[in-house]
């Protein structure tokens, strides 16, 4: 076994992320589409990250591996599994210890997380009963507009005013948006309305845990600049620009736990 390689693997509903650390920090990462079997997803993400590290050949060479995400219990070769809430908390804290509140917008759920002074999980709320306000919701909306996700974000940033989207359910929202498009409503205004609708859901969750500065957004949807702008305006606070890809925060947090737990054991 090689020395000093610690990994975190975040098996999400849409993508699987892996981060490998050594004493210097992150040395490799990967993001791959999730497969049907979480074990296959973890293998694919870890293999891709491992290929980027000289001296690492296979998963068994890692000193310690922590699994997280919805598929965390289905990674048989992980030393431990830790909930994604704790991993996002420690991951965000490690990027900036002043971060106290995190909104994690994943493929199929939305979470607000409150962080203790030491980076541990303080409190959380989750919205996981429907796709509203999640990555799946944005995918559906982009499909309606016939654009890529990144273009959808840019479109919303061009708008001077927004058309409110009243439906919370992604199926009804899709129908509402189609009706607006049929009425020749400017797409950018609809797009901004969608961003504000999701930002509102994030705001509601944040208020339930109590917003404390600094605030960060993690998960794949954190790359949606239009959503970040809408939430910034809504909570009237700046949102921290993370030092690493926000989609990797869960895996990064898991890798930090791997490093800690390996030393402890």
């Amino acid at each position: 076994m090689s020395k000093g390689y610690y990994a975190g693997c975040d098996v999400g509903s849409t993508t699987t992320k892996a981060v490998i650390l050594n004493s210097q920090g992150i040395i490799a990462d990967s993001i791959v589409p999730s497969k049907t079997d979480p074990e296959d997803s973890a293998n694919a993400a870890l293999d891709e990250a491992i290929q980027k590290v000289n001296g690492l050949d296979r998963i068994q060479d890692l000193n310690y591996l922590v699994g997280t995400g919805y598929g965390r219990t289905q990674i048989p070769f992980a030393n431990k599994n830790i909930s994604e809430l704790s991993c996002h908390a420690i991951g965000a804290y490690s990027c900036d210890p002043k971060i106290k509140s995190v909104v994690d917008i994943g493929g199929q759920d939305l979470k607000a997380i409150s962080i203790n002074e030491d980076g541990s999980l303080c409190d959380f709320v989750m919205n996981d009963k429907c796709a509203a306000g999640t990555g799946k919701f944005f995918e559906a909306m982009s499909r309606v507009f016939g654009v890529e996700l990144c273009d959808f974000s840019s479109l919303s940033l061009e708008a001077k005013k927004s058309i409110p989207i009243t439906s919370q359910c992604s199926v009804f929202a899709e129908s509402e948006v189609l009706s607006l498009i049929a009425k020749k409503t400017p797409p950018r205004e609809i797009a901004l309305g969608i961003q504000e609708s999701v930002a509102n859901r994030c705001h509601v969750l944040l208020r339930r845990i109590g917003i404390r500065e600094k605030v960060a957004i993690t998960g794949g949807c954190a790359k949606n600049a239009g959503l970040v702008a809408a939430l910034t305006k809504m909570i009237k606070l700046d949102i921290v620009q993370l030092s690493i890809d926000p989609q990797l925060i869960g895996a990064f947090g898991a890798a930090i736990f791997a490093q800690r737990d390996s030393k402890a054991s």
Binding site: Y70, S86, D109, S120, F124, M126
Partner: peptide
């Protein structure tokens, strides 16, 4: 329903208790 989400919440809860 949503057994996975329930487990995630409970696991995070006991983690938050240290």
């Amino acid at each position: 329903s949503g057994e996975g989400q329930l487990k995630t919440r409970v696991q995070a809860f006991i983690e938050s208790m240290g």
